[in-house]
């Protein structure tokens, strides 16, 4: 990936533009959507920043649970299918730990202020 600017800097620039220049000129529904747009960009920013490490960690856990190799999409699909058909028990400690770690990483990207994140991480 190139620098000067990085993707994160570009996102910050757009967030700054919406918040400081565009949003003050908007009303009602459009003002609301501008706030949502900033939230969306902030989530994209966090996904770029934290997503690769979270996915790599998830792949390692999934390999251990499933005893096979593969990329995230394949392994996640195998886990979902296994829980669905009953061949994998979601309450098994390794599976439960994986689901918990994965969703903590995901909510840290999607909605880091969500009360349920604090409730689960203590």
């Amino acid at each position: 990936m190139i620098t000067h600017p990085t993707a994160l800097e570009l996102i910050d620039a757009v967030i700054g533009f919406i918040e400081q220049r565009a949003a003050p000129q908007l009303k009602d529904r459009d003002a609301f959507h501008a706030r949502v747009a900033v939230n969306a960009l902030a989530a994209v920013r966090r996904e770029i920043e934290f997503g690769p490490a979270a996915e790599a960690a998830a792949v390692e856990r999934l390999k251990a649970i499933l005893g096979r190799d593969g990329d995230f999409i394949e392994l996640n699909e195998a886990l979902a299918a296994g829980i669905q058909d009953g061949s994998i028990d979601a309450a098994d400690p390794a599976v439960a730990a994986h689901l918990k770690a994965s969703i903590i990483d995901q909510v840290r990207i999607d909605q880091p202020n969500y009360s349920g994140l604090k409730a689960l991480t203590g």
């Binding site: 689901l99 969703i103 995901q106 909510v107 999607d110 909605q111 349920g116």
Partner: peptide, 11 residues
């Protein structure tokens, strides 16, 4: 992206 909030509550 709010679906994951419900997933963390489910967990």
């Amino acid at each position: 992206r709010r679906t994951s909030e419900n997933e963390i509550d489910l967990v």
